[in-house]
Structures are given as structure tokens and as C-alpha cells.
């Protein structure tokens, strides 16, 4: 379960012209195994909300519960352990340049100290899923934007996370690849993974009519 209760987020060093408060009194709840689109115009606070979910920011006010755990009460070790149960697709991919595609995808499993045999089986399978099994030895600078995005998605889902958070995961994909990705994400969701996807892609949202969280200027204007 993901629960926000009157959550405010304030950036200490807001850029000129930007509101210091990225989120204002946001409250919602997503049940275990739920799926939510997160929509809203640029600057509405979508990425800020996702950062709070994957524990990259602390709220200025309010209460956040992630997978049944109150975020504010976590020790650093507990927070790290909780992050391992959350798969994140970053808007800017954040692939490690010194690692090839295989090792980038394997990274979360290595951090979780999984066995190499399991890592090899899972990474190979997920690379096949995203259509990049033939590119596993390529480094990020040798991959196109769309390929990098698919590697980032593979890295987020390879550990079968309990919660999947994706920030514009189809931004660099063509329609066919985006649809293929949605098949993967909905398959994970049907296996019990809670999913939150921020997107501007209205066509995709209409093809997959899951409930929406709508944000505008840091306020939640739609839930359902």
C-alpha cells in the first residue's frame, strides 16, 4: 500500500520563478497491487511526488506510508532495504556509464547479493523481454535513447519489485515499444506489483484505462 496524508514538499533551493513548494497537502491511497497513472502538466509536481515514493526526498510536512512502512521512522539501513523492494524508472535513465547493458540490469540484484546463477537467468530473460538480448555487451553511450530507456526499465523490474515507480517510461519509445512495455508492466501488476506511472502520453492512458492521480501546481486535482 502507498498512502500520502496531507503531504507537503518544499525545495530549499528553488530556481527563480519556481514555486518553493512542489507539493501542497497531497493525500491519496493506492491499495496493494493497484495501478495508477500520474498525470498533469510539466511542473505540476509529478516527479516530486515520485521522489517521495522512492525515498529520494523527505516531505516538509505530512505522513507517507510505503509498502506498509512509515517513511519517517526508517533508519538508513531500513530505508535502503525498502528501496530494494521498489523498482524505479528514472526520467533521465541513470544508467551507469562504466557498466554494459547486462551489468546495468544486474545492478539491483547484485546490490541485494543474489546468486550469479539467478542473476544470469533473470537478466537474460528480462533483456529478451525488452528486445535487447543482442545488445547486452553494449555500454550506455553505444545505445540509442530508446534502448537506454528499455535498459532502465529492465533494471527497474528485474528484481520483481513490490512497487514499481516509472517517470515517463515511454518518453523515448515508439508506439510498438511503448505497447510492449505496457504488456510487461501490466503483467507485473497482475502478479501483485503496485504500479505508479507518470506520463504525458494521453493515448497510452486511454488505451489502458487505469485510475488516475491528477496533479496541478502541486495539488492533487483528480484521484480515480
Amino acid at each position: 500500500m502507498v498512502r500520502f496524508d496531507d503531504v507537503w514538499l518544499r525545495y530549499r533551493h528553488a530556481a527563480p520563478g519556481e514555486a518553493a513548494e512542489a507539493l501542497r497537502g497531497v493525500s491519496f491511497e493506492i491499495e496493494d497491487g493497484g495501478f495508477r497513472w500520474l498525470t498533469g502538466p510539466s511542473g505540476a509536481g509529478k516527479t516530486s511526488l515520485l521522489k517521495l515514493i522512492y525515498l529520494a526526498e523527505h516531505p516538509a510536512r505530512g505522513r507517507i506510508e510505503i509498502l506498509g512502512t512509515r517513511a519517517a521512522r526508517l533508519t538508513r539501513r531500513e530505508a535502503a532495504m525498502l528501496r530494494r523492494r521498489i523498482g524505479v524508472v528514472y526520467q533521465d535513465f541513470r544508467l551507469l556509464p562504466q557498466l554494459d547493458a547486462y551489468d546495468n540490469v544486474a545492478l539491483p540484484m547484485r546490490l541485494a547479493r543474489r546468486g550469479e546463477a539467478q542473476i544470469e537467468a533473470d537478466v537474460t530473460e528480462i533483456l529478451r523481454w525488452v528486445g535487447l538480448a543482442h545488445r547486452m555487451d553494449a555500454h550506455p553511450d553505444e545505445l540509442s535513447g530508446g534502448e537506454q530507456q528499455r535498459i532502465a526499465i529492465a533494471r527497474a523490474v528485474v528484481g520483481r519489485p513490490r512497487l514499481l515507480v516509472a517517470d515517463e517510461p515511454t518518453g523515448n519509445l515508439d508506439d510498438e515499444q511503448a505497447e510492449r512495455l505496457m504488456v510487461l508492466i501490466t503483467a507485473l501488476n497482475s502478479l501483485g506489483t503496485t504500479v505508479i506511472v507518470a506520463t504525458h502520453n494521453n493515448a497510452l492512458v486511454e488505451r489502458h484505462p487505469f485510475p488516475r492521480l491528477g496533479l496541478e501546481r502541486g495539488r492533487l486535482v483528480r484521484d480515480g
Binding site: 538508513r76 539501513r77 541513470r94 551507469l96 545492478l107 533494471r155
Partner: peptide, 13 residues
């Protein structure tokens, strides 16, 4: 950036 990423993926300090 690398450290921030692996930290986000659940690496312990």
C-alpha cells in the same frame, strides 16, 4: 551521479 543512483537502488552506506 553513480553513487546517487546505486543509493536509490538500495545500496547500503
Amino acid at each position: 551521479e553513480t553513487i546517487e543512483t546505486v543509493h536509490g537502488l538500495g545500496a547500503l552506506d
